[in-house]
Amino acid sequence: MAEPEPEQAKEEGKAEERPPEEPKRKLPAWSLPSDAIDRITMPFRWPDRVTREWALGGSTGKGISVCVLDSGVEAGHPLVGDVQGAWALVAGEDGEPTVVDDEEGDVAGHGTACAGIIRAVAPECDLYSVRVLGAGYTGSGKILLAGLRWAVERGFDVINMSLSTTKRDFASVLHELADAAYFRKTVLVASAHNMPVESYPWKFSSVISVGSHDLPDGTLFFYNPDPPVEFFARGVSIEIAWLGGSTIRATGNSFATPHMSAICALVRAKHPELTPFQLKSVLYLIASNGGGSDA
């Protein structure tokens, strides 16, 4: 079956705003009586063969908001272009993190590098920056949590996290935030790593975790049948945006992750109705090692 038209998706959105006399729409979906199965009718059907073309062919990521949770983004960098919004988490007067408009751009270069990669793969997505790195090591965990919470509450379509924390104290809160994002249809994409210590949030199953492959194709990715790392995207010798409008070559899962974030943006732009579960399923089906049909 053909992909849904945007209008169809809008119709679905309207259905949720029907007046209260429509009680069947108001019931929480804890159970499903047999006479109510029509309530969960899918707004569309997937084609018999889920292909890359169906999933993301022709997509530019238009209309999808991608948040770079990092060190800030240098707006106007030739590889980045416009940034639609930028905020920073700073320690407030009481020491607790607060959100302020980010006037500084990128304080380290890492976020600009990630943003440039996202822009290269999904050129028409909306880029947002939430700065949680750069103020030093101390207190960075708290700032990171507050930044992620804010980004999840704000409801970005995709959040790129080319970072992780090893602080066990933060693991349960991070886990809650990752699950909250998952159920709010925000896709969290996080860098995996192979260090001998536990780190988060990439290991949570509600996020999309990313390691590196060394092929020179930014839209090529693989599904890993041996998790916890779920996907491999381009991560070796990439020309990345660097501070002051320049570029350098770099390698690391930090740079594989924004490739995967951008691929998520491409699919979501074409299929905005997909839940994170469905999105992951589509990614599995179109992965280059052949989860689906046309690999």
Partner: peptide, 17 residues
Amino acid sequence: WVVVTRQPLVVDDLHND
């Protein structure tokens, strides 16, 4: 970067900057 992101990194062409 490495200490705050906990991520290993390799960077080349630093002379460009």
